[in-house]
Nucleic acid binder design. Structure first.
Lengths: 335, 335
DNA sequence: GTGAAAGCGCTAACAA
DNA sequence: TTGTTAGCGCTTTCAC
């Protein structure tokens, strides 16, 4: 015998396979005794249901797809881990979590079918994900998009307001007398880059700070790029008094570059990061950063997803959590 | 109409559904023209196959399970991300990667069925995972266990030899004159803790270094525990001249504690980490560490898994990759 | 309380 | 080259 099926159990128990099915799903009225007997046999035979068969008849896959724009490029480890942890925790173990990277998911989105996914969570970074999201919507799969504000599509969308956090962080810097604020931006095609940029531009314009073009450099959210771009900044004749990196990883890289140049953090150059990742607190100096509530976003996203899965007609929801500036030791007033 | 099926296509194309199936799988000889027509209709109708149905008949799920001992506790973000990236990359997009945490995967391993998983990768930390692995083997699911050496089970097993790396790291320290080497161990129930312990014990005994009980403390692989345990160590009257943390996260925590105490790294206290995670290189000072080749382990693991999946009768393979000491700036000779 | 039978969407053996 | 048919393992309706 290969794998135990309900038929095998039925034969041994001397009942029909439908009775076995009923017992296994402890459905309707059926004799307590036969039920007990069947369950016992199932256990002895090490029975586990064939999910494909069950899915086929129930039109329910017990699969939740978690699609990142990319799991390879531009996604920091702490963010990635945090997202998976939070989603897994909230989803529970009744469902499978299938992790995919949209950028390598070519084959014309071949498995995007409501029968294959009970729900889909898109952890989106790029506007280009819209074509994928659109497919998902067309297929009527319950879907929620996290992390990036989707403008052109009617879809459940949970994000954090990153402009506010950045604005506040920059405002704090300006209030401390800083004007020479350099920025290491993230990947150009990531929305987070554009949004965070808006945040500092808002603060700059409000406080009438001149934007120095040579102070704005492009990173890619990776540690190395933070290091390299900060090195570039330090070569400038007129050096910045602060470096604001668009994520904590790059902030760490930048700090290395500063210290390597024989300068001190924060005495010579202050640093501001973004994400509020755990490790940033343990650096010396601890890095001031802008915290985005990844867990809340994920929890809330899953909650909504399950709502839609249960009750198709709920209204589309857009929600934005706050981000906030966390002051730590990497910032000092301008000398 | 709900979701397009091959029957819908068949009706429109005026052929039988089996012809559609053939066209879709571009099987055997069938009229190029009808095939083309069918494919076109399929595209127009936005057809995507129902994987449950396909799985059911083919006895192939296109699911690869990636089971961690825990995705929540004791698993560092960089390790987790690295593993998922490496496995995903090698597996390719024909398969679904289902990420699970064994510790929360109670319900008597209910979905462990060869029909539900074409293959399973266990990223194992604890001996207790053996009961899970055993179930998988019993069910004849192709399986490979990564990361932890499995002793009591005949199973494909790809690990790294961590004893050697630790031994070399400690030897290096001893050669630099260090004797007061403190250790922050990892989670007690993780095999990695035991193995890395063996590494330093081997070096200690070989070089006849006395083991100071108060120098051996228990962390949990989390940043905070590195910080806290290092603080404890610094309260000792006779302070260590080196702290070796069983992973880079704890090393970072330990460094914070040392610097906070007004001591310098490495001038006053040297630090050695473990993992070779990317960020450890960007810390200041960069942390000397022991590199384990996670990518290689994962790549090789996937390769073997696919081998077994294709050809059931391949021999069981045990393979161990080397770990090696990476010298960086966090270590100085004993004063 | 239980069995018979149909059917979920697909593939494949067998006919034609 | 194509259609008919059976069947993968399961749930569920309808009888009894």
């Amino acid at each position: 015998m290969n794998v135990t099926t309900i038929k095998d159990i039925a034969k041994i128990a001397g009942v029909s396979h439908s009775t076995v099915s009923r017992a296994l799903n402890n459905s309707s009225a059926l004799n307590e005794e036969t039920k007990k007997r069947i369950l016992e046999i199932a256990r002895d035979l090490n029975y586990t249901p064939n999910t494909s068969a069950r899915s086929l008849v129930l039109s329910k896959s017990y699969n939740i797809g978690v699609f990142f724009s990319s799991i390879y490029d531009g996604t920091s480890s702490s963010f990635f881990h945090n997202v998976i942890k939070s989603i897994s925790e909230k989803v529970g173990s009744n469902y499978n979590i299938i992790v995919k990277s949209i950028d390598t998911y070519i084959e014309s989105y071949n498995s995007i079918n409501p029968k294959n996914f009970d729900g889909i969570i898109v952890v989106s970074q790029k506007k280009e994900d819209d074509s994928f999201i659109k497919k998902v919507i067309e297929k009527m799969i319950p879907v929620v998009v996290l992390n990036r504000e989707v403008k052109d599509l009617e879809v459940n969308n949970i994000v954090s307001n990153e402009i506010i956090g950045v604005y506040e962080g920059i405002k704090h810097l300006i209030n401390l007398g800083h004007k020479d604020i350099a920025i290491i931006e993230g990947k150009e095609d990531f929305e987070s880059t554009k949004v965070r940029r808006k945040g500092y531009l808002k603060a700059f314009s409000e406080f009438k700070i001149d934007i120095m073009n040579e102070f704005i450099v492009k990173g890619d959210y990776g540690l190395e790029s933070g290091y390299l771009r900060a090195k570039d900044l330090l070569k400038l004749e007129h050096k910045p008094s602060v470096i604001f990196a668009f994520n904590d990883d790059m902030a760490l890289g930048a700090m290395k570059a500063i210290l390597e140049a024989g300068l001190r953090v924060p005495e010579d150059i202050s640093i501001l990061g973004f994400d509020g990742s755990v490790f940033s607190h343990y650096l010396t100096p601890s890095i001031s950063t802008i915290k985005r509530p990844i867990e809340e976003i994920c929890y809330y996203g899953v909650k909504i997803l399950f709502n839609i899965m249960k009750n198709k007609n709920v209204e589309i929801e857009k929600k934005s959590f706050k981000t906030f500036f966390i002051e730590r030791d990497s910032i000092l007033p301008k000398k």
